[in-house]
């Protein structure tokens, strides 16, 4: 217990020093936040114009797709905000910064988490919130407590899944710095293609997204519950089940650290 409270205290300290650093460059902060907004705005425009032409895709209407995309975008942005240290970890390995982490008497994960707190993602989250509000007002969902709870669980589970992916990405940095581009399909790709409910991509993709990387647990299934297409209460809990994904991610990370300390490369 004392360990935990000391870890939380340290993490808060990290966040505060990150924010103080960032506030040294207010213009840059503002521009990056705006840039985040613009980049995802493109995706929104893509959806917007597709639905000018088509009325529905796979049975989902415009406002429902926006609801789906906004939740995925929020999940991703939250993960990126808190776990950015892992997302940019290749730099830490390349510059040898990670050696510094290893000569400190603290958990490596805590230190890497603390190394970056990316507040600029707030730009993207702002957009997600606007879309979310549009989505919930237009999709005709009758909001009940279980449905609100589902959204909260989606945000928690989704942040966990994307964090897990960033951790896997970082763990792979211990083995190769060249082949990492492929991981983009799982992170940026999932954000990009998560704009449409996973079911759109067909049966096989749905299976993949249920059992391999649990995107569907934090997007498709709970969305069906929110939209009233499924009523079984266990759909509420599915997003929390996605937390299992952190287990292999952290195991791979541990393995990576061990590899790093034995090969030193």
């Amino acid at each position: 217990m004392r360990n935990l409270s000391s870890a939380i205290k340290l993490y808060r300290h990290y966040i505060s020093i990150n924010i103080r650093s960032m506030m040294q460059y207010k213009t840059s902060f503002f521009l990056t936040a705006m840039g985040q907004f613009l980049v995802s705005f493109n995706v929104f425009l893509g959806i917007f114009f597709m639905f000018k032409r088509f009325s529905a895709v796979d049975g989902f209407f415009y406002s429902e797709v926006l609801l789906c995309y906004s939740i995925v975008l929020l999940e991703f942005s939250l993960a990126e905000m808190f776990v950015r240290g892992f997302d940019t970890f290749s730099g830490m390995v390349r510059t040898g910064e990670f050696d510094r982490v290893l000569v400190r008497p603290r958990n490596e994960i805590l230190q890497v988490l603390g190394s970056k707190f990316e507040l600029t993602r707030i730009g993207r989250m702002l957009q997600a919130v606007v879309m979310f509000i549009y989505g919930i007002t237009r999709s005709g969902v009758a909001w009940t407590f279980p449905k609100i709870l589902t959204v909260v669980f989606m945000l928690a589970g989704g942040t966990a899944v994307f964090s897990g992916l960033f951790i896997i990405y970082a763990a792979l940095c211990f083995f190769t710095l060249d082949g990492l581009e492929f991981m983009n399909i799982f992170t940026d790709g999932a954000r990009e293609f998560g704009k449409y409910p996973v079911g759109v991509y067909g049966e096989k993709m749905l299976l993949f997204a249920t059992f391999f990387v649990p995107y569907a647990l934090i997007q498709y299934y709970p969305l069906l519950f929110i939209l009233g297409r499924r009523t079984a209460p266990f759909y509420i809990l599915l997003p929390l089940a996605a937390f299992w994904f952190l287990i292999p991610a952290l195991a791979l990370w541990k393995f990576g650290v061990r590899h790093y300390t034995s090969s030193g490369s």
Partner: peptide, 30 residues
């Protein structure tokens, strides 16, 4: 940096594949 090139190719391939699935879904819809 052939590993990088291979990873890039694989990524772009997966990306294209997903894009096509989206368009196919819209095609099915209307």
């Amino acid at each position: 940096y052939r590993v990088a090139a291979l990873a890039g190719i694989a990524t772009q391939f997966a990306w294209g594949f997903m894009e096509i699935m989206i368009f196919t879904a819209f095609y099915r819809a209307d």
